[in-house]
């Protein structure tokens, strides 16, 4: 190699330059490795076809007052209940200080007659009973989770049992009076 001869005088600054160069190269290389890993991490995020199905439109015209349906949304059941006058009153007449997770009924519905909640118990993820006609609705006329005995009311709020939170209200909007888009 041509540059094997170096006078000892210029050795010192050269050493520093090498250190800087090595450091800079290490930094650039580390950035490169980091960037190279990002696509792999991102590939585990929901893919485009999954995201395309992330919202569902539900026709409500066929649900009589007093009944509820289950629809699948993002792999989980969503309960849609067409509430009776009595159920609406029950939900609205509760004093907030009686609630485990205080929330007014107003804050949980878009239209009073329709309650839309994710049907997953906030305790450990079981599906509460009470949607189908004839199933037990628990002590508060809403839902009852058979796994560990959580009782939900007609607004889907937790009233008794180990669950810490009310049933989650998903993002939804009414497209018409009888159709709703969840997600």
């Amino acid at each position: 190699m041509s540059q094997t001869v170096h006078s000892s005088g210029e050795h010192q600054p050269d050493e520093n330059r090498r250190d800087f160069l090595t450091l800079a190269t290490t930094a650039v290389g580390a950035v490169g490795v980091g960037c190279a890993l990002l696509p792999f991490v991102d590939s585990m995020n929901p893919s485009k076809d999954v995201l395309a199905l992330a919202s569902v439109e539900v026709n409500l015209a066929n649900i009589p007052v007093g009944q509820a349906i289950k629809v699948m949304w993002r792999g989980k059941p969503v309960f849609i209940r067409h509430r009776t006058e009595r159920e609406i009153n029950e939900a609205e007449d509760v004093a907030l200080n009686e609630l485990v997770d205080p929330q007014t009924d107003d804050a949980r519905v878009e239209k009073k007659e329709w309650l839309v909640v994710v049907g997953v118990c906030t305790h450990l993820g079981c599906i509460p009973m009470g949607t189908a006609t004839g199933e037990t609705r628990g002590d508060y006329d809403g839902w009852y989770c058979p796994c560990h005995g959580s009782h939900y009311d007609t607004s889907g709020r937790i009233r008794r049992g180990p669950a810490p939170l009310n049933l989650v209200v998903p993002e939804y909007e009414f497209l018409t009076d009888t159709s709703v888009r969840i997600g």
């Binding site: 190699m1 540059q3 094997t4 170096h6 090498r18 160069l21 800079a24 190269t25 650039v28």
Partner: peptide, 12 residues
Amino acid sequence: MLYAVKRKIWRD
């Protein structure tokens, strides 16, 4: 950059 580092390290 890697080439430059390589040249430096191998210089002697």
